[in-house]
């Protein structure tokens, strides 16, 4: 059962990767990157259970945090063109 799940996750990663490579707009790529990050977590969990070591789940949680930070940074850059953007400064000016 875990083998089938691993294969399914791998196929999904391949599909998301196709979108990331072909993606006409940047947002396709960002979304595909985020999806692949989440799928990597899934793959991690499934492989952990496949090899009988469910403690891989903790590492999956850390990956989730990193994925969030990366996507937030990309989107913030795209919205404001600057990573050190501050809401307070906009209100002042």
């Amino acid at each position: 059962m875990f083998v089938v799940a691993t294969a399914a996750v791998l196929i999904t990663i391949a599909l998301a990767l196709t979108r990331a490579i072909l993606g006409p707009t940047v947002f396709d790529r960002v979304l595909a990157g985020n999806t692949i990050g989440s799928l990597a977590i899934l793959l991690l969990a499934v492989v952990g259970f496949l090899t009988g070591r469910p403690e891989f789940l903790d590492i999956g949680l850390t990956y989730g945090l990193l994925n969030l930070i990366g996507t937030l940074a990309v989107l913030k850059f795209f919205r404001h063109g600057d990573l050190a953007y501050d809401v307070e400064e906009e209100h002042k000016s």
Partner: peptide, 25 residues
Amino acid sequence: LFGVVVLAGIYSFLMATLLIALDAV
């Protein structure tokens, strides 16, 4: 280059998964 940054992030995630499959946590 923006697409390159996103793809490099994807590359890192795949590489990390591969390293976990090799048991180098």
